[in-house]
């Protein structure tokens, strides 16, 4: 009987877009992620909130196989991130918090190279490039060097690239940071339409609480732990406040974090930690 229950449990894990269990990650004895567990349903729009340095980006790095966890388990689309990273990578798309385009190349070249390493055949590649460029409104700029693009255009191009191989799960790590309201609106309309049409699971980290309100469920992370996880409205009722912003301040406190808010700085910290470990 025990075995059967186990099978049922396995089935439910396999059907989740993401399932994380007792996941921990330590850097030099300091826990960045401290035994977190959660699940994300297929086609869900899931918000992952927390102050700077809470461990959000570390969690995403583990989920997309860029980092090994210290302990615990994580599955994406049913694949274990430790034992089958290639399968995991095939099924996900990521918009990183920091830019990851090759700025010396044209928009078209960036997308074409992306298509190559995701093994899209040339014909499909060509069709997809035109399709995603049209969707983010950059078709007319396709042969321009990315360095000449504005911040918003670069972001749109990254989103186009992340979607080009039709991922099942899309990780968005602060996708609209530093963008003007028009571009934010544009990107959000696009992501929402897409997640509805293509049944894509969206895993979002953001500091904009209005963006978090759109999510079906949000998890709030602080000091490496998940302090609460539920639907935005349920959370508001639970803490008897009127906005998600107040929920956030209520559960994570009002003090300002010594987080490494700047991308380069954080990368530096990561690389130094990595260097010391050797």
């Amino acid at each position: 009987m025990g075995k059967r229950e186990n099978n049922v449990r396995m089935d439910s894990i396999m059907n989740k877009a993401i399932s994380v269990s007792k996941l921990s990650k330590c850097f030099n004895g300091i826990s960045a992620v401290d035994g977190i567990s959660f699940e994300v349903e297929e086609a869900e729009l899931f918000g992952f909130l927390g102050p700077n340095g809470a461990g959000k980006t570390t969690t995403i790095n583990i989920l997309c196989g860029l980092m090994n966890p210290t302990s615990g388990e994580a599955r994406v689309n049913g694949f274990d991130v430790m034992s089958s990273p290639t399968e995991v990578r095939k099924s996900i798309g990521i918009i990183f918090q920091d830019p990851s385009l090759d700025e010396r190349l044209t928009a078209h070249e960036n997308l074409n190279f992306h298509g190559m390493i995701y093994h899209l055949p040339p014909k499909i590649r060509k069709a997809r490039i035109d399709e995603v460029l049209n969707m983010v409104g950059l078709y007319s700029k396709k042969h321009n060097i990315v360095r000449t693009f504005s911040g918003g255009m670069k972001r749109r191009l990254e989103i186009a690239r992340g979607l080009m191989h039709r991922p099942k799960v899309l990780f968005l790590d602060e996708p609209t940071i530093g963008l003007d309201p028009q571009t934010r609106q544009y990107i959000w309309d696009y992501i929402l339409t897409l997640s509805e049409m293509e049944k894509i699971t969206v895993f979002l980290t953001t500091h904009y609480m209005d963006e978090a309100e759109i999510c079906q469920r949000v998890a709030i992370m602080d000091h490496g732990k998940i302090v609460d996880i539920d639907m935005p409205d349920t959370l508001k009722n639970k803490y008897r406040v009127s906005s998600l912003n107040e929920v956030f301040l209520h559960v994570t406190g009002r003090e300002i974090r010594e987080g490494e808010s700047h991308g380069k700085e954080r990368l530096g910290v990561f690389l130094r930690a990595r260097h010391k470990m050797r």
Binding site: T86, K90, I94, F96, D98, P99, S100, D102, H114, I117
Partner: peptide, 13 residues
């Protein structure tokens, strides 16, 4: 330094 390595490292290759 400029992030493109991450694009290559998360690809299924």
């Amino acid at each position: 330094e400029f992030g493109f390595l991450r694009e290559i490292l998360v690809a299924p290759i």
